[in-house]
Amino acid sequence: MSDIHHRPVAIVTGASRNIGRAIALALAGAGTSVVIVARSDRESAEAVAREVEAAGTEASVVLADVARESSADIIVDHALERFGRLDILVNNASVRREKPVEAMSFAEWHEILGICLDGAFLLTRAAIPHLSASPAGAIVNIGGLTAYTGAPGRAHVVAAKAGLDGLTKALAVELAPRGITVNLVSPGRIATDRSHGTAEKNPAHHARNRTLTGAEGSAEDVASMVAYLAGPAARFVTGQTIHVNGGAYLP
């Protein structure tokens, strides 16, 4: 068997930029091959794939809308066809729009829940049989600070991220007998590129959620925690929400 089939394999959604990109690179640094999932930006996804390969592992790109039920099997099947196994699932895909709740359409509400929460459910459901076959199956969901603090104009985002917290706990209990750990990493104020169309340039909640460190964190701060939770040193950690926020929120 070639070396490619001896490496752990991870699926990372929303991996074409920012935190998702950093997660893919952190996992690659730990010797993991990565399936990079993006909704439409193939150029950015392929650039991340090249960075993963430069780190010494293998990468493959899938363009898919995680909110579509059919996408989950496409993504998981791609991982199995390309690498022959699946060990880690990182549900990172997210959209963070802002709009007053009374002006929010049902379609706008459902778009966010579909990507953040439905997508995590669908991919987890498709991945479970293969994660169960891994000696160290792990799921890491990426939450958000406002799920715990609230935020104006983000009813859909807050609800979706809070739902991910509940889903994490439910899955940890249900999947423990199958050897799968499930945890959530909740980033706080992270310095990211907000030039694309799915993020507010200056989110209103940033003025309310000050860090104790006096600075924003980096995508790499979040990624290092994800790599830990997905790795062999964290097999006794499951059902947990880990806050990476510089002390902006103290649970």
Rank of each mutant, 00 (worst) to 15 (best):
T32L: 08
S33K: 11
S33I: 02
S33M: 09
V35N: 01
V35E: 01
V35L: 14
I36D: 05
V37D: 03
V37Y: 06
A38C: 10
R39S: 13
S40W: 00
R42Q: 14
R42K: 13
E43T: 12
E43W: 00
S44D: 02
A45F: 07
A45M: 08
A45W: 10
E46Q: 15
A47D: 12
A47V: 00
V48Y: 14
A49E: 08
A49H: 03
R50C: 01
E51I: 01
E51Q: 15
E51N: 06
V52R: 07
V52I: 10
V52G: 06
E53F: 05
E53M: 14
E53L: 04
A54I: 00
A54P: 03
A54R: 14
A55W: 08
T57G: 06
T57Y: 08
T57K: 10
T57V: 15
T57S: 12
E58G: 02
E58H: 15
A59D: 09
A59F: 12
S60I: 04
V61K: 11
V62I: 13
L63G: 04
L63Y: 03
A64R: 03
A64S: 03
A64P: 05
D65M: 06
D65W: 06
D65Y: 07
V66T: 10
V66N: 05
A67N: 04
A67V: 01
R68W: 00
R68G: 00
R68A: 11
E69Q: 14
S70H: 11
S71G: 03
S71F: 02
A72T: 07
D73P: 00
D73M: 05
D73G: 09
I75M: 03
V76D: 02
V76Q: 06
D77Q: 15
D77G: 11
H78T: 10
H78F: 12
A79M: 08
A79F: 07
A79H: 09
L80T: 02
L80K: 09
E81Y: 00
R82S: 08
R82C: 00
R82G: 00
R82W: 00
F83I: 05
F83P: 08
F83L: 06
G84N: 11
G84F: 05
G84C: 09
R85W: 03
R85T: 02
R85M: 03
D87T: 06
D87R: 14
D87P: 14
I88P: 06
I88D: 02
I88Y: 02
L89D: 02
L89S: 04
L89E: 04
L89Q: 08
V90Y: 10
N91S: 15
N91D: 11
N91C: 15
N91V: 03
N92D: 09
A93W: 06
S94F: 02
V95D: 02
